[in-house]
Amino acid sequence: MAHIKLPEGLPGIRGPMAFRPETAKPLNELAEVLLRSENSLSRGERELIATFVSSLNNCFFCQNAHGGIAQHYLQCDLQYIDSIKNDYRSSDLSDKLKTLLSIAASVQNGGKQVTTEQIEKAKSLGATDIEIHDTVLIAAAFCMFNRYVDGLGTWAPQDRNIYVERGPRRAAEGYINFDLYKQ
């Protein structure tokens, strides 16, 4: 049961968003600009950073909701998403993206954990300043989203396939102007 009385029937972050629409608006605008706006990191790559950080924070709703969207963008299966979460270093992702994921993991652990060596490695692999900035911001933002979702004790459907099935529509509708009440 959620820690406060939230509108019923809405999973994860949707409950608190319906509870306080005034703060939901900039929150969704933030997700839109970080995860979907024009960027040299693809939407799939950015959703993967979001999924990875949410998994490190052990936030069930966020890692599955964003995992479903990442899976759609990357046209892969659930096992592949799980393999990234468990051991991205052994995956077939580009070295640049692996380094950005390592920076994201450091941010999740604490901003001070990001080292100059990590940044230099990312740059030597072709990461731009904006890509590094955005990786840090996305990783840090999901440390907020995850705490918002879990700190209020929200509920989430446990069947992971539900998130996979919803991925394509979530990807198409984006983070602004979607119907909070439509599943």
């Binding site: 820690h3 406060i4 009385k5 608190p16 509870f19 306080r20 703060t23 920076i103 450091s106 941010v107 999740q108 604490g110 901003g111 001070k112 990001v114 100059t116 590094i132 900035h133 840090v136 911001l137 990783a139 840090a140 933002a141 440390c143 907020m144 989203f145 995850n146 705490r147 918002y148 700190g151 209020l152």
Partner: peptide, 26 residues
């Protein structure tokens, strides 16, 4: 109130973000 608890959790989550931006970019 529920709203005060909501806002407390949200502000705490928000600063979990700010702190990581500030230190994560050194």
């Amino acid at each position: 109130t529920d709203l005060e608890i909501h806002d407390t959790v949200f502000i705490a989550a928000l600063f979990s973000w700010y702190n990581r931006m500030v230190d994560g970019l050194a």
